[in-house]
Simulated scan of single mutants.
Amino acid sequence: MKKILIVEDEDSIRGFLKINLKRNGFEVLEANNGEDGLKILDLEEPVLIILDVMLPGIDGFEVCKRAREKKEKIGIIMLTAKGQDMDKIMGLEYGADDYMVKPFNPMELLLRIKAILRRIGVQDEKKVLKNGIFTVDTYGKKIFKGDKEIDLTPKEYSIIKLFIENPNRAFSRDELLDLVWGKDYFADSKIIDVNIRRLRSKIEDYSSKEGYIETIWGFGYRWRGEAREEYKK
């Protein structure tokens, strides 16, 4: 079971995070200050740290810096106060992979955690995902439609895997850009439309129609999990 270390001095936030992470299959380690967080980091092997900026004693920036020096590949998400843009910039400069602004959506945090773990090469414990006629082999990074493997680029694979992990969830173009390309990738979100169009041509029964991937006009895309009835005829 993958371990996540929460370093947060507010009991309510730490407890909220712990409940949601445990529900999603993570083992949770806790510290309410930076010194204890660094001690736990030395003793345990967390794959990721959720780190508050404002901590008693050693602040979150210093913890982030020391954590990155100790474990180059560990994922780090910093929690910042609303409107504190300088905190975000400093956190990234000290080695954080991402940041969340309080208050935050627990689903968004979970998706960002998964995106970071993919980027740093932490394998999913669940090797096979299934949705309708689609199967994802996360170990071999392959997608099958029925018994036929679909030839995908790495980005196309990441998009469809994200969709299958979150069926019926609507993703904005900006969310897909952040979760698949990373927050440090600066590009027009139209690159999402290009990749979705290519993906549809490979997985849809009729490439000119919307079946498995549904467009949410003016927003983004959603995985339906099955083709519309009119496209099955």
Rank of each mutant, 00 (worst) to 15 (best):
E125N: 15
I160E: 02
V128I: 13
D85E: 13
M107T: 15
T138D: 11
V101G: 02
A170M: 04
I164Y: 00
M100H: 13
L92S: 03
S172V: 08
K145A: 12
L92M: 08
Q123W: 08
Y139T: 15
L129D: 10
E125Q: 10
K114Y: 11
A170V: 14
K130D: 12
N131Y: 14
R68A: 01
Y94H: 14
D97T: 08
R119T: 12
G91N: 01
R66M: 09
K130F: 03
I113Q: 05
R118P: 08
R118A: 01
K141W: 13
E108M: 12
G83L: 01
A67G: 07
I150T: 10
M100G: 06
I143P: 00
K161M: 15
G95S: 03
T80L: 07
I164W: 07
T135S: 10
G75N: 06
L129Y: 04
D98E: 11
N131D: 09
G132M: 00
M100L: 13
I160D: 07
K145C: 12
I160R: 00
G83T: 08
K114N: 07
F163T: 03
A96C: 05
L79K: 09
A81Y: 04
L162W: 02
I159W: 09
P103G: 02
K65C: 06
Y99N: 14
S158K: 11
I164A: 05
G146K: 05
I76S: 02
K145P: 13
N168P: 09
V122Y: 08
G132F: 06
F134W: 07
I74V: 06
A96P: 02
V128D: 15
K142F: 11
C64A: 12
K127P: 04
F61A: 04
N131P: 07
V63L: 03
R119W: 03
I150Y: 05
R66N: 13
S172K: 00
G95Y: 05
I164K: 05
K130A: 04
I77F: 05
G91Q: 10
A96V: 02
L152A: 00
Q123M: 14
I133Q: 09
L162A: 01
E62P: 09
T138A: 06
K65P: 11
Q84V: 14
E69R: 15
